[in-house]
Design a protein around this nucleic acid. Structure first.
Lengths: 191, 191
DNA sequence: AGTCAAAGTGACACTTGTGTCATTAATAAA
DNA sequence: TTTATTAATGACACAAGTGTCACTTTGACT
């Protein structure tokens, strides 16, 4: 028994995502967002107290989606199969790298709602890393991964590869295959 | 026959560097810089028209320093020796990754001085990559590097490793050694 | 047709950063 | 000591973002 909404949360998150990814956290403003949505700036304040609140809610939404997919990956194969599945998955969701970086750009002095989201986001982050870490452990048990390499470096290196800029526009298939190969076997020829 | 300056360009660049690396391009302001230097904001405008001009000059200064060191690396050894030298060098100058990113954050619509600096910076960037690329070619000729991997991916992957966050504070030596090993031989055990 | 709760708007006051410039301060040279 | 010259300052006007709120609009339900 009220007026119809001009936009849904999903539409808002979609615009938020493109604006955040194109311009970054600092250049993200309610003015720009409102203009994309073709809505007045004031109306967004009806639903989110400020930029940090909106962004932290958006990040929760994105992380949930990502983790849902991550958790649904087939856990039945041997290490190598699972490892390759994970790599393919993270490359299909390469925005996750930027998302994770934005989490740390939200100032800590924010409202309660934001703080609690930040805590939750860090938990998600850690959980994801823990899951990946247990995959690494499996790899070490199966004697596929070298045991003298620390989990931290394997994890860091794997996730960092998402952000390598593909300046020359090498096709995604070749790109991912090469990265997978280098991570596994290195760039040096075997003698 | 005039008043003494309260600060040198070197001091300004030093403060610029820490401010840029701690807070990033967007949060960098003349107010903050002036407060670090304990000088009025107006006095900085005596030497630099605006933030973009100062930052682009600073980047030129940093890139020159970096490239000077890069060029002075011993070119006499075989591929592997040189490759390891380069990796050690870029890890000793790990800020270079952030520096390179900041280059692309300066808006394109700026003044002539800035535009010409941008052009020059991109030239430097390309030159550095070209040099590294010729090292890769050498590696391929010496049959150390797999020939089916594109130069772009080897270059990208190598430079990207600088930015892997060392969350767990693994000692630098072990860190660099592990990365070098993974790049060369991969993380998988040889059978 | 009338009601009214929620949605949307735009003007207002405030904050932070920018760039300028008239004024003041320091100091080497005359 | 005076002077010429450059360094530094802080006040001013302007631009862009923020958060608020009284007011208007819409449309489902009487």
């Amino acid at each position: 028994m009220a007026r119809e909404r001009k936009f849904t949360d999903d539409e808002l998150f979609k615009a938020t995502k493109s604006l955040l990814i194109e311009e970054g956290y600092d250049a993200f403003t309610f003015s720009k967002l409102a203009s994309i949505m073709e809505v007045s700036r004031g109306s967004i304040y009806k639903y989110y107290e400020n930029k940090d609140e909106l962004i932290s809610e958006f990040l929760m939404y994105e992380m949930n989606l990502f983790l849902k997919g991550f958790n649904e990956l087939d856990k039945s194969g041997d290490f190598q199969t699972q490892f390759y599945l994970v790599i393919d998955f993270i490359f299909q969701h390469s925005e996750i790298h930027q998302i994770l970086e934005i989490i740390n750009q939200i100032p800590k002095k924010s409202s309660n709602r934001v703080s609690s989201n930040q805590t939750q986001l860090n938990t998600y982050h850690t959980d994801m890393y823990k899951q990946f870490q247990s995959l690494i452990e499996q790899g070490k048990k199966e004697r596929v991964i070298k045991s003298h390499l620390s989990d931290a470096i394997i994890l860091g290196m794997t996730f960092q590869t998402i952000a390598i800029p593909n300046h020359f526009g090498i096709p995604q298939d070749e790109w991912v295959a090469s990265i997978r190969e280098i991570l596994s076997e290195g760039m040096f020829q075997r003698e």
